[in-house]
């Protein structure tokens, strides 16, 4: 199985590569269109800012490529947000794979800190990326923007409100949390994705 990780100007791309290696899977980190198109699985990771990242994707034509992929694709964190319609971060037009907008967390009380950072639980997990085993389990989040609950929501988490911890639609899957940093639970979720 060839797993390709999209290489672009985002931080910490290699942590996904490391996580796959721990599962015994080697991956290629690449921006080569042919390699990405032919891969069995594609992972679109991301730590960074929406506007600069999106304009980089447009400049390199990776935006069109990602939208045309037919194999299972997993977006992670910023990767997931960029797969949505538009983001409040820098008022950015995104890939519109998921027809839903990305919003900034608004603290409801003093204790609500933004970013939402740390371990939080999954609920309402959907078959596909998840099995029932992940219901109620903790995964690691770091983000200031969120995707509201919508038709594509594949898991939810609560922080100031209930939001989408994961999305899925056709061959596209996405997690707001970092499976590559979520210990044994995260490794299970990555393994679930690799089985799709």
């Amino acid at each position: 199985m060839v797993v390709a990780i999209i290489k672009y100007n985002a931080g910490n791309i290699y942590s996904v590569d490391y996580a796959l290696k721990r599962l015994g899977i080697s991956s290629v980190v690449t921006a080569e269109p042919e390699v990405l198109q032919k891969a069995d699985k594609v992972i679109f990771p991301g730590v960074g800012e929406a506007r600069t990242t999106m304009s980089y994707l447009k400049d390199t034509k990776l935006d069109l490529l990602i939208k045309d992929l037919r194999q299972p694709v997993l977006g992670i964190c910023l990767g997931m947000q960029l797969m949505c319609k538009r983001s409040e971060e820098g008022k950015t037009e995104c890939l519109n794979i998921f027809d839903v907008d990305v919003k900034r967390f608004i603290p409801q009380k003093h204790e609500d800190k933004v970013p939402h950072m740390g371990w939080n639980t999954l609920s309402n997990v959907a078959e596909g990326l998840f099995t029932k085993e992940q219901e109620g389990q903790f995964v690691y989040f770091v983000h200031s923007y969120y995707v509201p609950v919508n038709n594509y929501t594949a898991a939810t988490t609560e922080y100031t409100l209930l939001f989408s911890a994961a999305l899925q639609k056709d061959n596209y899957y996405a997690t707001q949390f970092h499976p590559e940093k979520s210990g044994a639970v995260g490794e299970k979720i990555l393994a679930n994705f690799l089985r799709l």
């Binding site: 490391y18 940093k181 995260g186 490794e187």
Partner: peptide, 8 residues
């Protein structure tokens, strides 16, 4: 550490 450990 990054290669071996799966938490932040």
């Amino acid at each position: 550490v990054a290669a071996c450990i799966s938490i932040p």
